[in-house]
Amino acid sequence: MLAVTPIRVTKLETELLSLFGRRFKKFCEFDGLNKLLTDVGRSVIRLIESRCVLCKRQEIYKCLILLLFLGFGKFEEVYIMIKRIACTMFAMMFSLSLTAESLYVFVPTEVRANVMQTKIGELCNGVEVTVFGRAKDFRKQVKGNPPTAILSLSPVIEASDSFNTVMKGVKKGQDVEDYVLVSVDKPLEVGAIGTKRIGVVDLLGRKPMEKFVSGLLETKVKLKRVTKVEDLLPLLTFGSVQGIFVPTSLYDQLKSKSNLNLIATTINVQVGLASAALSKASSKEKVMKCISAFDKELNATLGVEQWRTL
């Protein structure tokens, strides 16, 4: 019944579903139903803990509501009917509130997505947070299961037209960062970039990424896209590319990690830092509160120092 998709059930959600069972037990307290509701709560928790670590979230709610309907169907009295409707309404309201605010995060960093998801999830009560490590997964989910808000680098947000930027990450007083071309042993000749192969972390997919980078460098370039930030260094080590196109902060990180003679060529190109954007229909309060709660360490991981509300 439960299709496997890459959505992790959050700790918060597990707790809420546990509470779900207990609340109903108390509210709808009479013989038969009492046992049923305890069983529903237990089975949902068991489902989440065992087989359903990765599953479609909506399916859980559908499953819950269906189970409740089936259980209530055993009673005939009017009083019970009223309770049935009340309980069902409560269940629906409860599940709606769980899915009301969702935030998808995709900012390429070396920190693993699950680690970042736990951290952001802890700071964002009432917001369902999903962090993606790969651009493709992010794009697929945004298209297939649109969230309330997204947090990503500006080019990614600009590429998704159904979101409006409401907060911008700021570093050293600016919401953009300088990008450089990094090569080994000798600098890249800016005039000859069109003939070189350049490594980048994929943000937008093949054609949009080529268009985006070519636009910034003002010449058509041949890209080698990688899915993870850490995959850029091997491209240089093995000579698969002549240079990589990275923010200056990443260049500094690479220098501290590698003993290769890395050289940065300045190209006078700036790209927007991480920003948060909301879908047109949504309310922004919860998401903005959540992002404002990010601590210094988390902001540093996302490549910003603080957030500016627009």
Binding site: V226, T227, K228, D231, P234, L235, F238, S240
Partner: peptide, 11 residues
């Protein structure tokens, strides 16, 4: 094929 050299894995 642009190159026939065996590539190293990057990821």
């Amino acid at each position: 094929l642009e190159e026939t050299d065996v590539q190293q894995p990057v990821s």
